[in-house]
Nucleic acid binder design. Sequence first.
DNA 1: AGATACGAAATCGTATACAATCATCGTAGT
DNA 2: ACTACGATGATTGTATACGATTTCGTATCT
Lengths: 234, 234
Amino acid sequence: MTERNAGSPSISKSEQAYTAIKAKILGGEFTPGYRLVLAALAADLGCSVVPVREAIRRLEAENFVTFERNVGATVAGIDPTEYLYTMQTLSIVEGAATALSAPLITASDITRARAINAQMRECLNNFDPVRFTSLNQQFHSVLFENCPNPHILDLVHRGWNRLQALRSSTFSYVPGRASESVAEHEGLLQILESGAPVEDIERAARAHRASTLDAYLARSTPEQQAQGPLALSY
Amino acid sequence: MTERNAGSPSISKSEQAYTAIKAKILGGEFTPGYRLVLAALAADLGCSVVPVREAIRRLEAENFVTFERNVGATVAGIDPTEYLYTMQTLSIVEGAATALSAPLITASDITRARAINAQMRECLNNFDPVRFTSLNQQFHSVLFENCPNPHILDLVHRGWNRLQALRSSTFSYVPGRASESVAEHEGLLQILESGAPVEDIERAARAHRASTLDAYLARSTPEQQAQGPLALSY
DNA sequence: AGATACGAAATCGTATACAATCATCGTAGT
DNA sequence: ACTACGATGATTGTATACGATTTCGTATCT
């Protein structure tokens, strides 16, 4: 038997670099505007610059970094409107993913989601934002992971990643929003159980995200609020 | 004054490679399944393999090619369901982009779109698919280019690119669909002129794409038709 | 003092070289 | 005849080297 990867990498440096840099962006270690210097990253990762370049170009194509010729890469999303745009985009693709998943969802899925939401409710006392966010993602994953269209699912995942990057750097949590969110989750589950038409499910999923955005906007500057019709939930 | 780029490139080989390869994919020269060999591409482009690698990783992040470690890259989308998924995704993001553009659209935009649609109508005799497709893209551009959310706009553009790649390789045009399309365009314009609520506009934009998909499905195999609830237009 | 021109340091861009890995095909053994 | 195995060629993965470009500090001129 040909023993594959006997302790040796089998995972390319390029992949390692991609994962490591992305993790640092998502984790908030590299905040928006941070300058990504090839040589420094390479030294940090213990490899040469070539794999790092590849990783950065990939991250660029995923809109996690911006790149300028002969100048270099910086972590994207320094603009506060970025959060608005990301949330809006996510509301659309997540709404669609949830709607497309709905016909395929099982009773056991619903039970699982409800259990997660119960944990979120418990989590409201001694509020731990990290745990709450993780549970929130798990909850929504149950609702949209059945989506048969891989492209849409991919867009949803990218949106969540992007959101995580923005959250761990610039944007803070809105007090009181967490408990609202838990309540809305229960509403979503009931709509799903009732076998409502997909249109209603999409509308509800969108509205859920839109109200998170509204909660944020309510505390933000008038200029941001005047960004035009951003909600797109009916 | 420092003369910038005096005849010299100023555009990187990496960028050239990216553009060239993407163009060949979109143009149908590299059809789905085509094996992209680094050395061959590099020789073709007159550069070394490093820029080509970067270009390919970027194309991978945009889902134009699939990549396997130590094996290489192949042009993506060989699966016929790919067309369904792409159309569905596009119906969602384009619907949203059109709806978000609607409040910002001007009377002159409408006039311009109507002129383009008139050219499409003329084009129906002596049907030229390439010209028709180009006009079609121009028409829809007018309707969604005002979208204030750059992320969504980017997704729409990617969708159109992806569609073009699929069209120029595997999928053919559905006879008779073109004239239907022109008629639907006029309907869209009237809804926009009437100042209908964004919800209606989004619905109409989705439905327009959905009916193109339906026309395709009507001639395809039963297995594809049984792919589940793909329409998501109400 | 302010603006401009110059130069050095930092950084990116790409070619080349070589190691690592995988696919193919021929050969030996059953 | 068929399968297991090993050599060979093709292709990818990465390091290093060096040229190209930008940036920024400094000196010079007005």
